[in-house]
Amino acid sequence: MRICVFGAGAIGGLMAAKLAAKGDVEVTVVARGPHLEAMQAQGLTLRSEGNEITVPVRAVASAKEAGPQDYVVVTLKAHSLPGAAEQMQPLLGPETAIVSAVNGIPWWYFFSFGGAHEGRLVESVDPGGIVTRLLPPSRAIGCIVYPAAEVSEPGVIEHTYGDRFTLGEPSGERTPRIQALSEALIAAGFKAPIRPKIRDEIWVKLWGNMAFNPISALTTATLDVVIGDAGQRGVARAMMLEGQEVAQKLGVRFAIDVDKRIAGAAEVGAHKTSMLQDLERGRPMEIDALLGSVVELAELVEVPVPTCRTVLALVRARARAAGCY
């Protein structure tokens, strides 16, 4: 089995290191800069739960060097995908599956969706359909990322918590390709359940991200402060209820209620959201994938989302002012 991690940062590096350590998967990582150079020189180091391993991985600067794969795991930020889709083409053989480990509403969301919305583009994450043209949704396998990790230095991944990558075909089928991927991840030490309704899980994760991320970017507060402050928590809860109505109009079922989801987020503690980290580092922020897409889908199903619209306008303005949008 050949697996390529395209954009091997923290999460991609975590997955690549554990797959490579198992030894029966041919792992390639596409990376750049000092991180690439360190992996080429000394391998990929993973620090997790008090243990440290260093494994050799095939680390390359381009998809052309990597060649066709059985699976391509995409761990990029969503806004990077339209620009990267062309670069990924040499990785794609006739049967290559693209494992979409990207936050937010994915470009393939309405593939195998059925009904009136079948095949609809989500412009917020797939402007003009460029991603759909270059990465056909028929190749996509959904993947919800639950671990937390960071690149502490070039070539070194610090794994903080979590070991689950939930998988799902857009069609809900249990195909041979998703079964084989799940088995490889489980053999590497991850939990990799296959869910028939992957969109339900997409929304449960997005439910928190769509609210906590932009609020934290606006207030520069860590997650515990956002949830502990009555005002910020109230805004987040209002956004989440609006998002829930949108999702339910699209057939999503939530297994937990909004307050339990907020309580779960509170357990993470004094965490800087990814959007706040990007703002502080002057990097593009995942505004459209995490919130712009929700507002777009709200228009589609004719659900008013006034709180989401207000926060979206404000966080876009904040990002523009910081050169991050």
Results as ranks from 00 to 15, higher is better:
residue 1 M to L: 12
residue 4 C to R: 03
residue 8 A to L: 07
residue 11 I to G: 07
residue 15 M to S: 13
residue 19 L to S: 11
residue 27 V to T: 11
residue 28 T to P: 08
residue 29 V to L: 02
residue 29 V to R: 07
residue 30 V to Y: 09
residue 31 A to H: 01
residue 31 A to I: 04
residue 38 A to E: 04
residue 40 Q to Y: 01
residue 43 G to Q: 09
residue 46 L to R: 07
residue 51 N to F: 08
residue 51 N to S: 14
residue 61 A to Q: 07
residue 61 A to K: 08
residue 64 K to A: 14
residue 65 E to G: 03
residue 67 G to F: 02
residue 69 Q to F: 02
residue 69 Q to A: 13
residue 73 V to N: 05
residue 74 V to C: 05
residue 76 L to Y: 00
residue 82 P to K: 10
residue 82 P to W: 05
residue 86 E to I: 08
residue 96 T to P: 11
residue 99 V to H: 10
residue 101 A to D: 12
residue 105 I to L: 03
residue 105 I to G: 06
residue 106 P to D: 09
residue 108 W to G: 06
residue 108 W to A: 13
residue 116 A to V: 14
residue 122 V to I: 14
residue 123 E to H: 04
residue 124 S to C: 05
residue 124 S to L: 02
residue 125 V to C: 02
residue 126 D to R: 00
residue 127 P to I: 13
residue 128 G to P: 13
residue 136 P to Y: 12
residue 143 C to N: 09
residue 143 C to W: 03
residue 143 C to G: 09
residue 146 Y to H: 13
residue 148 A to R: 02
residue 152 S to P: 07
residue 156 V to P: 10
residue 160 T to D: 08
residue 160 T to A: 10
residue 163 D to A: 09
residue 177 R to E: 15
residue 179 Q to L: 14
residue 179 Q to G: 11
residue 179 Q to T: 15
residue 180 A to G: 02
residue 183 E to S: 15
residue 185 L to D: 03
residue 185 L to E: 03
residue 191 K to Q: 15
residue 198 I to R: 00
residue 202 I to E: 04
residue 205 K to D: 09
residue 218 L to F: 04
residue 228 G to A: 03
residue 229 D to S: 06
residue 231 G to P: 04
residue 232 Q to P: 00
residue 237 R to K: 15
residue 240 M to R: 06
residue 244 Q to T: 15
residue 247 A to D: 10
residue 249 K to W: 04
residue 253 R to A: 11
residue 256 I to L: 09
residue 256 I to W: 02
residue 261 R to L: 11
residue 262 I to T: 01
residue 262 I to G: 00
residue 263 A to M: 05
residue 271 H to T: 07
residue 274 S to T: 08
residue 274 S to H: 01
residue 276 L to Y: 03
residue 280 E to A: 04
residue 282 G to T: 12
residue 282 G to H: 08
residue 283 R to H: 13
residue 285 M to Y: 12
residue 289 A to Q: 08
residue 300 L to Y: 11
residue 301 V to D: 00
residue 314 L to E: 13
residue 316 R to K: 15
residue 324 C to Y: 01
